[in-house]
Amino acid sequence: MAEQILHLIAELDLKPGDRMPTEVELAARMGTSRTVVREAVKILSAIGRVRAHKGRGLYVSDDEGMLGAPRWGGFFLPADLDHVYMLFEFRRVQETAAGRLAAANATPVELRAIEAAAETCRRGHLTGQSALFDRGDDDFHLAIATASHNQFLVAAVREARRLQRQTNIIGMSGAVGGHASAAVEEHAAIHRAVRDGDPDGAALAVATHLDNTLEDYRREIQRRLFDR
Rank of each mutant, 00 (worst) to 15 (best):
E3W: 05
L8P: 04
I9N: 09
D13S: 10
G17K: 03
M20K: 03
V24R: 11
R29W: 14
R34Q: 03
V36T: 15
V37A: 00
A40W: 00
V41T: 07
S45F: 00
G48Q: 05
V50F: 02
V50Y: 02
R51W: 12
A52N: 07
K54P: 11
R56W: 05
Y59A: 12
S61D: 06
D62P: 06
E64K: 06
L67W: 10
W72I: 05
L77Q: 14
E89D: 09
E89M: 07
F90Y: 01
R91T: 13
V93M: 14
R100M: 11
L101A: 05
A104H: 09
V109Q: 14
R112V: 12
I114K: 02
I114E: 06
E119F: 00
L126W: 15
T127W: 08
G128M: 03
A131D: 02
G136W: 09
D138H: 12
D139V: 00
D139S: 01
H141D: 08
H141A: 06
A145V: 14
S148F: 06
N150E: 14
F152I: 15
V154C: 15
V154N: 11
R161N: 14
R165W: 07
Q166F: 03
T167S: 10
N168G: 13
I169S: 14
I169T: 11
M172D: 15
G174D: 13
G177W: 01
A180V: 01
V184S: 03
I190W: 01
R192T: 08
R192N: 10
A193F: 01
D196G: 09
D196P: 08
G201H: 00
G201L: 05
H209Y: 02
H209K: 00
D211Y: 06
D216V: 00
Q222K: 12
R223S: 14
R224H: 11
R224N: 13
